[in-house]
């Protein structure tokens, strides 16, 4: 099992399937608050839903109203299970705190691949890769 040590942004411990992008995410305007679908034109995850995934991306961008979009997603059950960043920006950090989404940053995200089963232990700032893949067993 591979483990990476980062920094706690918001507490919690959860296991799930990773959804990884190298593109930054703007939640306000870039993510549908009702479905969890990424709607930003040309985004690597355009058309994909972040609901129920462990969302792995470099950092947030865009309007501070984005924090409320994470809150809206949580309310309708479409929020990511956890968030893993290289460097969490204030919009995402505040969004995770108000929505109580576990989050860790200072993780080299290129080590994680979409579909891998990972565990986020935010209390200790640890991200662990538990299994190869949900979708493509080899």
């Amino acid at each position: 099992m591979t483990r990476f040590k980062g920094r706690r942004i918001f507490k919690g411990k959860i296991e799930g399937e990773a959804l990884v992008t190298g593109d930054d995410i703007s939640f306000f305007g870039g993510c549908d608050p009702e479905t969890g679908e990424i709607v930003e034109k040309g985004h690597e995850l355009e058309g994909k839903s972040i609901a129920g995934k462990i969302l792995v991306f470099p950092t947030g961008k865009g309007s501070t109203v984005g924090s409320y979009v994470l809150y809206a997603l949580k309310k309708v059950g479409k929020a990511p299970l956890a968030i893993v960043n290289e460097s969490t920006d204030t919009v995402v950090a505040v969004g995770c705190i108000i929505s109580e989404i576990p989050a860790v940053d200072q993780i080299e995200i290129s080590n994680i691949q979409t579909g891998q089963k990972i565990e986020v232990d935010a209390d200790n700032g640890i991200v662990s890769i538990k299994g190869k893949s949900y979708d493509h067993p080899d």
Partner: peptide
């Protein structure tokens, strides 16, 4: 973050 348009129902909640 005051405009209802930007906040939406969740922000208001």
């Amino acid at each position: 973050g005051v405009s209802y348009h930007n906040l939406g129902e969740a922000g208001l909640e």
